[in-house]
């Protein structure tokens, strides 16, 4: 498919959607959002680009293997749970730090954020893996 309207608007939308997915990721925990939703939105951006420019384009520009994203995300998520064990807490127990950041005011960072980032990476990796396998011709 080669539609001028689609490719042009994708150019404008792609980064906006990615940015919005990051917003959702960080807004999570206390507000609607979180790693899963954020990852899905980022995945939607990737799929939009795949529709406009073809799946190979997305896979090539991503420059990271989907397996690495899946594994890294899972590692981060499972590692957050296990990390609490190392620090003497219970499995998946979370802690938080509050800090006064100039311009932003009081910022509360919860360790669940690490878990959420892991989930985000897993979802993005999954979408990439789908694009890799669905982008190929069917090998019958």
């Amino acid at each position: 498919m080669n539609s001028l309207i689609l490719t042009t608007s994708t150019r404008a939308l792609f980064h906006t959607i990615l940015l919005f997915s990051l917003f959702l990721l960080f807004a999570g925990h206390n507000d609607p959002g979180g790693g899963f939703v954020g990852g899905l939105v980022a995945g939607a951006a990737l799929v939009l680009r795949a529709v406009a420019h073809g799946a190979e384009d997305v896979v090539r520009t991503a420059r990271v293997r989907p397996e690495a994203l899946l594994g890294g995300g899972l590692l981060l998520a499972a590692g957050t749970g296990a990390g609490a064990l190392v620090l003497g807490g219970d499995f998946l127990e979370s802690g938080y730090v509050e800090a006064d950041v100039p311009l932003l005011g009081t910022v509360k960072v919860v360790s669940v954020l690490l878990f959420d980032i892991g989930v985000y990476l897993v979802v993005v990796g999954l979408v990439l893996a789908l694009l890799v396998s669905l982008g190929r011709e069917l090998d019958t």
Partner: peptide, 14 residues
């Protein structure tokens, strides 16, 4: 947890 972490590592070492 351990097999899950290992599964993640084997994915990275794909």
């Amino acid at each position: 947890v351990l097999p899950l972490v290992a599964a993640a590592l084997t994915l990275v070492a794909h």
